[in-house]
Amino acid sequence: MARDPPLASVLPFPVVDEAWRLALAPALVGAATLPFLPPVGVALLALALGTLWFHRDPDRETPGAEGIVVAPADGTVSVVREEGSRLRVGVFMNVTDVHVNRAPIAGDVREVRHRPGANRPAFSKESDRNEQVAIDCGKYELLVIAGWFARRIHPAVEPGDTVDRGQRVGHVSFGSRADVILPADVDEDDLLVREGDAVRAGETIIAERE
Rank of each mutant, 00 (worst) to 15 (best):
R151K: 10
A73K: 09
A19P: 00
R3V: 05
G160V: 03
R3C: 13
R110D: 15
G84W: 13
M1K: 04
P6M: 03
C137Q: 09
L24Y: 10
A2S: 14
E61Y: 05
D17T: 13
G84L: 15
P159F: 14
I181H: 07
S176Q: 06
V144E: 09
S9F: 10
P63T: 04
A73W: 03
K139L: 07
D59T: 01
A43Y: 03
P104H: 13
S9Y: 04
G30P: 09
D74E: 14
G138L: 01
V79L: 14
T51S: 14
V133E: 06
I181W: 05
L49Q: 08
G75M: 11
P104C: 13
V172Q: 02
A25L: 13
W53H: 06
T51D: 01
V169E: 02
P6H: 14
D136R: 09
G41H: 04
E83A: 15
V98S: 11
G64K: 15
G41D: 10
A71C: 08
G175Y: 00
S78C: 14
D108C: 07
S127K: 04
P183L: 01
L87E: 10
D179C: 10
L49Y: 14
D17E: 15
R129G: 03
V163K: 05
D185L: 11
A106H: 12
P159G: 06
D136S: 13
I68A: 03
A118P: 09
M1N: 02
L37H: 01
G84V: 14
R81I: 12
P39V: 03
Q132D: 07
P116A: 15
L34F: 14
I206E: 12
D17S: 13
L34I: 06
E195M: 13
S85N: 07
G117Q: 13
V77T: 07
M93C: 07
A201G: 12
K139S: 11
Q167E: 15
V100Q: 13
D59V: 06
E83I: 08
A46I: 07
I68L: 08
E208N: 00
D187H: 08
S124F: 14
L182V: 04
R194F: 05
E61V: 10
A2K: 12
R200F: 12
V144W: 05
T62E: 00
A32C: 08
E195W: 06
A198S: 08
L192I: 12
N101Y: 08
L45Q: 02
V42S: 00
E208P: 00
P5R: 09
Q132W: 10
A23G: 04
V10W: 15
Y140D: 12
